[in-house]
Computed example of a mutant assay.
Amino acid sequence: MAVNTNAVVIGAGVIGLAIGRALAQRGLETVVLEKAGTIGSETSSRNSEVIHAGLYYPPGSAKARYCTRGKKLLYDYLQSHGIPYRRCGKIIVAADSADCPRLDAIAERARRNGVDDLRELSRDDIRQLESSIEAAAGLLSPSTGILDSHQFLLSLQGELEAAGGIVALATPALAGTLGAKGQHSVSCGGSAPTTVTCKALVNATGLWARETWVRLDGGEASAMPPDQFFAKGHYYAYSGKAPFSQLIYPLPTAGGLGIHATLDMAGQVRFGPDVHWVDGIDYTFDEGGKAGFIAAIRRYFPGLVTSRLTPAYTGIRPKVVGPGSADADFAILAEPQHGIPGFVSLHGIESPGLTASLAIAEDVATAIAGR
C-alpha cells in the first residue's frame, strides 16, 4: 500500500509527539510512526520527570535556549491543560567548601542564561529549608518543578489527532529514501506494510536516531549522521515518608547531573540516575553499583536508610559523544547542516529534552511549514 502525506515524524516520544502536534496545528497532514505499541515507552518515560530551569548549559547553546524557553511554554501548557505538575523547587548542594567554586560557576552560567530567580544558600539556610540535608552551601532554584510526563504525552497525542494528525503505533520505519529534491519515502512494517511519501520528514527516534538515519539513507544524502553513545542510569525508589519537600541535586558529574533526589506527583522520593556507558539498549536493573549509589547519596543525605531503597527502573540517555568527552549540545540537523531539503534529524536529545520539547517542536515546525 502507498500513502502520500505532507509530513512524517518517526518516533512517538515526547519530542516526536510535540513536533507532530505542532506540524498538524499548522495545517500539515502529519503521520507519526512508532515502532512500539505505546507512545513514549523509552527515554520519555524513563527519566526524572523534572522541569529544568536552565542552570547548567553553556550560554548560547541549544540546550540553554530551548530549556529556558521550553520551561515557560511547558508550565503554560500544563496549567492550561490541567495536567498535574508542581513547581516544587530544587536545591543544588556543595557537599564541602572545596566544591563552592563549582557552585558559583553554575550560578554565573544560570544568570547568563537568563535565570534570575536563584538564591544562594548557606549551610544554615539549607538546614532551615531541608533539615535532613548536610551541605556547605547551595543554590535554590524555585522555578524547577516536576510533572506527570505520561499525562503530558497523552495530551500531545490528543491534540495532534484533534488537528487531523495520525499516530501509527507498532509501525516501524524499516527503510526509506531521502530525496535531494525534497520528496522522501519511508517503508513501514507492521500489520499493513506501507510506503509513505512526504515532503517533510523528521527523525525523532532518540536512542535509535543514528540507526534510523542510516535506514533512510537510500537516496542522495550528503552527510552521515552523528555518532551515537548510550549512558544508562539506575533509579531507586525510597519507601516511606519523603524526607524532602524539594528536589535535591549534588554537583554534576561526568555524563550526568549526579545522583539526585526527585519527587513524583504522589510525593514519593526517587534517587538517580548514575552513569554507566553501555553498548546497546538494555533496561535490566543491575544492583552491582548500589554501594557507590549509597555513598553518593550520603554525601548530602547522611541519614539515608538503605533498607528503604528498592530498585525502580533504568533509563538510557542518547548522546553524541562518549565517555571522557565534554558534554555535547543537542544536534538538530536540518537542510543547512546536511543539504537534504525537508529533512530534520534530532540527535543527543537527552536532559533537558522533556523541558525543551515544546520549544524544539516550535522551531522544527516553523522551519518545515515555512518551506
Results as ranks from 00 to 15, higher is better:
residue 1 M to N: 12
residue 2 A to T: 15
residue 3 V to C: 10
residue 7 A to T: 12
residue 10 I to R: 00
residue 15 I to A: 03
residue 25 Q to N: 11
residue 27 G to L: 13
residue 28 L to Y: 05
residue 30 T to W: 03
residue 31 V to W: 08
residue 39 I to Y: 04
residue 48 S to E: 04
residue 55 L to T: 02
residue 56 Y to L: 07
residue 63 K to D: 02
residue 63 K to M: 04
residue 65 R to S: 09
residue 65 R to K: 14
residue 69 R to I: 07
residue 71 K to Y: 07
residue 71 K to F: 01
residue 72 K to M: 11
residue 74 L to H: 03
residue 77 Y to C: 06
residue 78 L to M: 08
residue 87 R to A: 10
residue 92 I to A: 01
residue 96 D to N: 15
residue 108 E to Q: 15
residue 109 R to A: 05
residue 113 N to M: 04
residue 118 L to P: 03
residue 125 D to E: 10
residue 127 R to L: 14
residue 128 Q to S: 14
residue 131 S to F: 10
residue 131 S to A: 15
residue 132 S to V: 12
residue 135 A to P: 01
residue 135 A to F: 02
residue 136 A to F: 07
residue 147 L to I: 13
residue 150 H to R: 15
residue 152 F to A: 09
residue 158 G to T: 13
residue 158 G to L: 08
residue 159 E to K: 10
residue 160 L to G: 02
residue 163 A to I: 11
residue 163 A to N: 09
residue 171 T to D: 06
residue 173 A to E: 01
residue 174 L to R: 06
residue 180 A to R: 09
residue 181 K to Y: 07
residue 186 V to F: 00
residue 187 S to H: 12
residue 193 P to D: 13
residue 196 V to H: 04
residue 196 V to R: 01
residue 197 T to W: 08
residue 198 C to M: 11
residue 199 K to Q: 15
residue 200 A to Q: 13
residue 202 V to M: 08
residue 203 N to I: 05
residue 205 T to A: 10
residue 209 A to F: 06
residue 212 T to H: 01
residue 215 R to D: 04
residue 221 A to N: 11
residue 223 A to Y: 04
residue 228 Q to G: 10
residue 228 Q to Y: 06
residue 231 A to M: 06
residue 233 G to K: 02
residue 234 H to V: 04
residue 234 H to M: 06
residue 238 Y to P: 00
residue 240 G to W: 05
residue 243 P to Y: 05
residue 245 S to G: 14
residue 257 L to D: 00
residue 262 T to G: 11
residue 270 R to T: 12
residue 272 G to Y: 00
residue 287 E to C: 11
residue 288 G to P: 03
residue 293 F to N: 02
residue 293 F to K: 00
residue 304 L to G: 01
residue 304 L to D: 01
residue 307 S to L: 06
residue 309 L to C: 03
residue 315 G to Q: 03
residue 315 G to M: 05
residue 327 D to S: 14
residue 327 D to Y: 03
residue 332 I to G: 06
residue 340 I to Q: 12
residue 342 G to W: 03
residue 343 F to K: 00
residue 348 G to T: 03
residue 354 L to R: 01
residue 354 L to V: 13
residue 361 A to C: 10
residue 368 I to D: 02
residue 370 G to M: 13
